[in-house]
Amino acid sequence: PVYLSVKADNSMFIGNDPVTDETMITALNALTEGKKDTTIFFRADKTVDYETLMKVMDTLHQAGYLKIGLVG
């Protein structure tokens, strides 16, 4: 499974590897070998604001990742 996490300080990680807004999709493409039907499990600290969550989800959708599971 692929886990994308947003921490309380808005830092992002794919698994244990830090990513930025600019590198997130490139890292996901490498990890999933470009398979856009891969489910991305998205988790965020409860203090992360809604705007940040939606920005990340919008970026995922624009890149073609449509299977996003929200996890606690």
Rank of each mutant, 00 (worst) to 15 (best):
K7N: 13
D37R: 05
E51V: 11
T32N: 03
A8K: 08
Y65M: 01
T20D: 09
G64Q: 02
I25A: 03
T59A: 13
D58C: 11
L53E: 02
D37M: 06
D45W: 07
A44K: 04
T20K: 04
I14P: 00
G69F: 15
I68Y: 04
R43L: 14
L4M: 07
F41N: 05
N10D: 06
P18T: 05
N16G: 09
T38A: 07
F13Y: 13
Y50H: 12
G72V: 13
K36R: 11
E51D: 10
F41E: 10
T23F: 05
L53N: 02
D17V: 15
R43F: 15
R43D: 12
R43I: 15
Q62R: 14
L31D: 01
T52F: 15
Y50I: 13
M57R: 06
A30C: 10
Y3W: 13
T23L: 06
M24I: 13
G69P: 04
Q62F: 07
I14M: 05
F13W: 15
D45S: 06
A27I: 14
T59H: 09
G15M: 08
T52C: 06
V48L: 09
T52H: 11
D9R: 06
D37F: 05
A63T: 02
K7M: 14
G64D: 02
V56F: 05
S11A: 08
M12V: 09
S5Q: 11
I68G: 03
E51N: 12
A8G: 11
F13E: 05
V71C: 14
V2S: 01
T38H: 06
V6D: 00
V19E: 02
D17G: 05
L4I: 15
T39L: 14
E33P: 02
D58T: 12
G15P: 01
F13C: 09
K35L: 06
V19Q: 03
V19Y: 04
V19G: 01
T47N: 15
A27Q: 11
E33D: 13
P1S: 09
A27S: 09
E33C: 11
F41K: 04
I40L: 04
S11P: 01
L70Y: 11
T47C: 14
F42A: 05
T26V: 12
E22H: 08
F41H: 10
L4R: 00
P18E: 12
G15F: 07
Y50D: 08
D49G: 13
I25S: 02
D9E: 05
T39S: 06
Q62G: 10
R43E: 13
H61R: 15
M54Y: 08
M12T: 03
L4Y: 01
T32C: 07
S11Q: 12
A63W: 05
M12W: 06
A8T: 06
L70W: 14
F41L: 14
D17E: 13
L53D: 00
D9P: 10
L53G: 01
L60H: 00
P18A: 10
G72S: 12
T26P: 13
M24W: 07
T38S: 06
D37A: 07
M24C: 03
P18C: 07
I14E: 00
K7W: 10
E51W: 11
H61K: 14
G72M: 13
D49Q: 12
D49T: 14
S5N: 10
A8P: 05
K67H: 12
K35S: 08
A8W: 11
S5W: 15
V6R: 03
E22R: 08
L31Q: 06
G64V: 00
T20P: 03
L70F: 14
E33M: 13
K46I: 11
N16D: 12
D17Y: 13
L28P: 00
T26G: 12
L66R: 09
T20R: 04
K36I: 06
K7A: 09
T38E: 05
A63K: 02
I14G: 01
F42Y: 04
N16R: 10
L66V: 11
V56N: 02
D9M: 05
L28K: 00
T23I: 05
K46G: 09
M57E: 03
D58W: 11
Y3L: 08
D45P: 05
M57A: 05
K67M: 10
V19K: 01
D58H: 14
G64H: 02
S11K: 12
T32H: 03
M54C: 11
D49A: 14
D45M: 03
M24F: 12
M12F: 06
D49M: 10
G72C: 13
G34I: 03
